[in-house]
Design a protein around this nucleic acid. Sequence first.
RNA 1: GGGGUCUUGGGGUAACCUGGUAGCCUGUUAGCUUCGGGAGCUAGAGAUCCGGGUUCAAAUCCCGGAGGCCCCA
Length: 478
Amino acid sequence: MDKNKDFSEWYTWILKEAELVDIRYNVKGFPVIRPWAFSVMKKIYSAYEDELDRNGHSPMQFPAVIPESNLNKEKEHIKGFEDAVFWIEKAGMNRLEERLALRPTSETAIYPMYALWINGISDLPLKLYQSGTVWRYETKATRPLIRVREIQWIETHCCFATKEGAEAQIIEDKAIAETIIGDVLGIPFLFFQRPKWDKFPGADNTYAADSLMPDGKVLQIATTHMLGQNFSKPFEVKFSDSDGKEKYVWQTCYGPGMSRIFAALISHYGDDKGIVYHYQFSPIQVVVVPIYKGENKAKIDNYAAGIMRVLKENDIRAYYDNSNNTPGFKYNRWELKGIPIRIEVGEREIDANKVVIVYRDTREKKTTELESVANDVSQAGKEMFERMKSAVFENMRNSIDKSEDMDDIGKKLDLGKIIKIPFCSMEMEGEPCYEQIKDKLKAEVRGTLFGSEEKPKSKKCAICGKEAHEYAYVARQY
RNA sequence: GGGGUCUUGGGGUAACCUGGUAGCCUGUUAGCUUCGGGAGCUAGAGAUCCGGGUUCAAAUCCCGGAGGCCCCA
């Protein structure tokens, strides 16, 4: 399957063939995540959770239902989500006195409790998170893992005594994304401050990580929001400050989307033969394939068992595929499944007392000594990941372009690029420039690069020609 | 939100127009055999998306629903 020719077709193909997702479950937007995807997603969850823990967060778990009265407390928030809420109106045969929302996000579930938990300055900062599911009745076309109605994510909810404390959290959220999504998972992204018209309902500002997928559309894989005191006031999340005065807390929340991160991972690293899982994250790190000939089965099995023993002693997740298939069949199957390293065991290897290691990305073979196999395998796994990662990041860098001319922007968007343009205003929806980008270029203003301080000097807005105040990034999106 | 298109064993399809025996490939199970890039033989199990309607008879015709995919907003 040709990934670069028709990404959409490739994506559907790999979800099915590699047994990642089953779309046959009969509720729109609720695909089943199969073991071969979820066992990797679980590892991603752990990596993320560990990093949150290291940064002073603690885990918690809130109920999935929110009473209607809670959800209605913050006006912009409910306005933004009301069309997307699944409601529970009946239980058994009884109509509920108050409707319960299946949480579309958890602010309005959590903050009434925060009001009870937070009393004084010594209770701050409060940094908690939960790994779980939210439900949104998505009206746009759904797409497995990318746009779904049941969303697997982690959400953090943090409270601070000061605005500065909350602002520092946004920077920490960005750093956590850079560490886990960027360094550990090797998914390149740009971290934007969203335009005012595209912020989270109820937030002062929204920041988000966008990754450019192989078809040239950006996918939002994590967001973080400066909530200011917009929620702490209606939910009365207050504390006694050291000056003896009662004050409202400053809040942030942060949500990396796990299935989208997973989708970005397989999309950036997969190839025409299938998935290429990262050595560290693959359910199986090494597959050992025997090559039998004549009556040598016992001899091969015995030699392979020795290799398997060494690998397992070194905590390498290895699988011996002695199923009744030909070697070629097994190669193709495990390449499709994305196993990063393969070891082939036949007469030649036994006679020479060697091991053949095959890299998933290049399919290049390397002969090594039996004694050093564990070390060589993990070495090869790491080397392979680094090699692929630099190619993926290089590709991302080459996909960021700039332009100051409408037609040129359109041409570059067609090539699947993100375009940096001088832009007049990020303030309001309905801005003529924003509308033009939407209508004429079929693209969106994704925001300004957060933390970069890039400012156009005496430049004109690429759309209207008036004075530009910002460098904005424009892209087509999922 | 608008338009197009599709739904038959696990997967891919034929039969549909012109109503009447559900065929093929692949996978799967068992046995034999084979193994350095998707082997072979034999035997078995397995299907018309859901709900109505028309008809002696519906995979096929009509109405409604659910879901998939693509394009546009």
